[in-house]
Amino acid sequence: MKAASPIIKPYYFLIALAWVVFALVLICPLLVVVIEAFSQGIKVFWQACIEPEALSAIKLTLLATIIALIMNVIFGVMAAWCVSKYEFIGKTLLVTLIDLPFSISPIVVGLIYTLLYGSQSIFYNFLIEHHLQVIYAIPGILLVTIFVTLPFVARSLIALMQEQGTQEEEAARLLGANGWQIFWHVTLPNIKWALLHGSVMSTARAMGEFGAVSVVSGHIQGLTNTLPLHIEMLYNEYNMVAAFSISVLLLLMAMLVLVLRKWCEKHLERHPQQKESA
């Protein structure tokens, strides 16, 4: 028996198998979406994308994604800062809390926000008196989007910053830097790629969230319809082509974001001390 053969043999077999799995599980469904979208030509596809209701859905989705991103970045940095730079009681609890949204069903997320801000809530009268519309309006959509994307930035930062330790910050402090200076000049340059990576994941997730948003949105066309909800609406109006066209649009946005992510990862790998172990 040749020494090299055990390595060579599974090589081709495994790759072929991986391609089969990949094609069956991932490519086929995506292909269905793309083929349906262009089944009546590119013009119909384009029209579906520039229709006013689609545009308002795109705007709302971008708004929700961006606001969720900003809030997640601020929160992620703060949380990662305390978790990675200090030892304190209840740290595990904090990390568990941050991870919690990962394991909660989107429908349950919608339900808990409905219970908190809906007619069952103790705040309900207060909200009504002050003309504050939370669920079935944009704030509700923002809140659930933030909820489902909350862990992403924090997790990718915590993983990296814990590995980096506290020496550089301590040195900077001893040299007389204040908190902001330490953050801007020492910490941020070290974590920027992980920050970008977490942001990308949060963006991807925020764009496609369906279940939770669907519970709190109310599906008001032109006001509270996000892209995923708009797709569902088009599908319900017998407009398969338009529904899949918008899906392709969403896929293209996702692809863009994911390529960006790949690019971040490359940068991460270039700096071996910033290796990620999420």
Binding site: F22, L26, I27, P29, L30, V32, V33, P106, M201, A204, R205, M207, G208, E209, F210, G211, L227, P228, I231, E232, Y235, A243, F244, S247, L250, L251, M253, A254, M255, V257, L258, V259, R261, K262
Partner: peptide, 18 residues
């Protein structure tokens, strides 16, 4: 490697329909 993450960004309803 890039496409592995697409289900993550695709609304689950679209995945269901497809």
């Amino acid at each position: 490697d890039v496409m592995i993450d697409l289900p993550f960004a695709l609304p689950t309803a679209v995945a269901g329909i497809a």
